[in-house]
Every structure is written in C-alpha cells, then in structure tokens.
Amino acid sequence: NRTSFTQEQIEALEKEFERTHYPDVFARERLAAKIDLPEARIQVWFSNRRAKWRR
C-alpha cells in the first residue's frame, strides 16, 4: 500500500534532493527522524525521484 506524503514531507524531501540526488544513510536517517518516515520509504522516494528527474 502506498505511503501518502504530507506537503511538509515532500518539501523536505525535495529540498534534500536539490542538495544531493544520492543521500547517504546518515542523511536519510536524519531526514527520516525529522519528517517521521521510515528510512526505507525515503530510500524508495529518492530512487523514484531520480527516475522522474532522468525522464
């Protein structure tokens, strides 16, 4: 089942994506704690966001 992201979560994710397309585990963990999502969801979001960026 899909995770629905809040506007705040999307903004935080997009901001980090501007900084780096490949956040390391520490950056992902920090973001996970900040926006209250599992680190695995963040990893998947970045993977999908990079795919979207390449299109």
Rank of each mutant, 00 (worst) to 15 (best):
E39V: 12
E39H: 08
E11M: 12
Q7F: 10
F26E: 15
A12I: 04
W45K: 01
K15V: 08
T3W: 05
V44M: 09
K15G: 11
R19Y: 06
F46H: 02
K15I: 13
E11C: 09
R41D: 14
T3N: 15
A40S: 15
R50G: 01
K34Y: 04
A12S: 10
A33T: 06
E14R: 02
Y22G: 01
R50L: 06
A32C: 04
Q7L: 09
E29Y: 07
L37G: 01
D24I: 00
R41P: 05
K15Q: 07
D24C: 03
R55Y: 03
P38R: 04
V44G: 09
E39T: 06
F17Q: 00
Y22P: 00
E29Q: 13
Y22T: 10
R41M: 15
E39S: 09
D24L: 02
K15C: 10
W45V: 01
Q7W: 06
W45S: 02
E8F: 15
R30E: 13
E16Y: 04
L13G: 00
I35M: 10
F46D: 01
E8T: 10
L31C: 02
F46V: 00
R54E: 07
A33W: 09
Q9R: 03
L37H: 02
T3F: 05
F17M: 01
V25Q: 12
R28Y: 12
E39Y: 05
K34H: 04
A40N: 07
F17N: 00
S47C: 13
Q7V: 11
T6D: 06
T3D: 14
R49Q: 14
V44H: 08
R50K: 02
Q43M: 12
N48W: 06
D24F: 00
L37T: 09
A27H: 12
E29L: 12
P38N: 14
R19F: 07
W45T: 00
R28V: 15
E39D: 07
E29T: 13
R2G: 08
F46E: 00
L13P: 00
E39R: 05
E16D: 03
Q43A: 13
F46S: 03
W45C: 02
D36N: 11
R19L: 12
I42W: 00
T6L: 05
P23Q: 02
R19G: 05
W53R: 07
E8V: 08
K52A: 13
R41S: 10
E29F: 06
S47G: 12
F46M: 08
W53F: 09
I35K: 02
F5T: 06
T3R: 09
E8D: 14
K52S: 13
F26Q: 15
R50P: 00
W53I: 12
E16G: 02
I35D: 02
D24Y: 01
D36K: 06
E39K: 05
D36G: 11
R50S: 02
T3P: 10
K34D: 11
E8K: 06
F5H: 07
T20V: 07
S47D: 11
L37V: 14
R54C: 14
S47P: 01
E8G: 10
S47H: 06
R49C: 04
L31H: 01
Q43I: 05
Y22N: 08
F46R: 00
R2I: 15
A33Y: 10
A12Y: 04
R55T: 10
A40H: 07
K34G: 07
L31A: 01
L13W: 00
R55N: 15
L37Y: 04
D36T: 03
V25S: 14
I35V: 08
E11K: 10
E8M: 04
Y22F: 11
F17D: 01
I10Y: 15
V44T: 13
I35T: 15
A51D: 10
V25Y: 08
A51Y: 08
T20W: 06
E16N: 04
R30A: 08
A12E: 15
A40G: 08
I35E: 03
R19E: 11
E14S: 05
K52T: 14
A12F: 11
E14Q: 06
T6M: 04
A32G: 11
F46L: 05
R41C: 13
I10K: 03
A32D: 01
T3G: 13
T20I: 06
I42M: 05
Q7S: 13
N48P: 01
R54F: 12
K15S: 12
R28W: 04
R49A: 14
D36C: 11
A27I: 03
A51P: 02
K34V: 14
F5I: 10
I10G: 05
A12P: 03
W45M: 00
Y22M: 05
N48M: 14
E18M: 08
A33Q: 15
R28P: 02
W53S: 14
I42V: 09
P23D: 00
A12H: 14
R19V: 08
E18H: 04
K34S: 13
F46T: 00
R19H: 07
Q7T: 14
Q7E: 13
V44F: 13
R30G: 06
L37E: 10
F46P: 00
H21W: 09
W53M: 15
I42E: 01
R54S: 12
T3S: 15
A27F: 02
E18I: 06
Q43G: 09
A51H: 07
K15P: 01
S47M: 12
E14H: 02
T3V: 09
A40I: 10
R19P: 00
I10H: 06
R55I: 12
A51Q: 06
D36S: 15
R2E: 07
R50N: 06
Q7D: 10
R50V: 06
R55K: 07
E18W: 06
A51N: 08
T3H: 04
A12N: 06
R54M: 14
K15E: 14
E39Q: 10
F5C: 09
K34L: 08
R50Q: 04
T20R: 04
Y22K: 07
A27L: 07
S4Q: 12
K34R: 12
Y22A: 05
V25L: 13
T3Y: 06
T20A: 05
R19A: 06
R2K: 09
A33D: 02
L37K: 02
K15D: 11
F46N: 00
R54A: 14
I10P: 03
F26G: 15
D24R: 00
A32N: 02
F17A: 02
N1M: 05
R41F: 12
F5M: 14
Q43Y: 08
E16P: 00
I35L: 09
H21E: 08
T6Q: 03
I42S: 00
R41H: 08
A51W: 06
P23A: 02
P38I: 04
L31S: 00
L13R: 00
E16M: 13
R55G: 04
K52L: 12
F17Y: 04
F5A: 06
K52G: 09
E29C: 13
V25N: 14
R41A: 13
P38T: 14
N1G: 07
H21M: 14
L37F: 05
A40L: 06
A51L: 07
S4Y: 10
N48L: 12
R55V: 06
A40R: 10
K52M: 13
R55S: 14
R30Y: 15
S4L: 15
E29W: 07
R28D: 02
S47E: 15
S4P: 11
V25E: 15
E39A: 09
L37A: 09
R55E: 05
S4A: 08
F5S: 03
L31M: 07
R30P: 02
A32W: 01
I35P: 01
I35F: 11
T20D: 12
N48T: 14
A27G: 05
T6V: 03
F5P: 05
A27M: 09
F17R: 01
R49P: 01
T20G: 10
Q9W: 00
R50T: 03
V25D: 09
I42C: 04
A33P: 06
E8Q: 15
L31N: 00
R2Q: 14
E14I: 01
F17C: 01
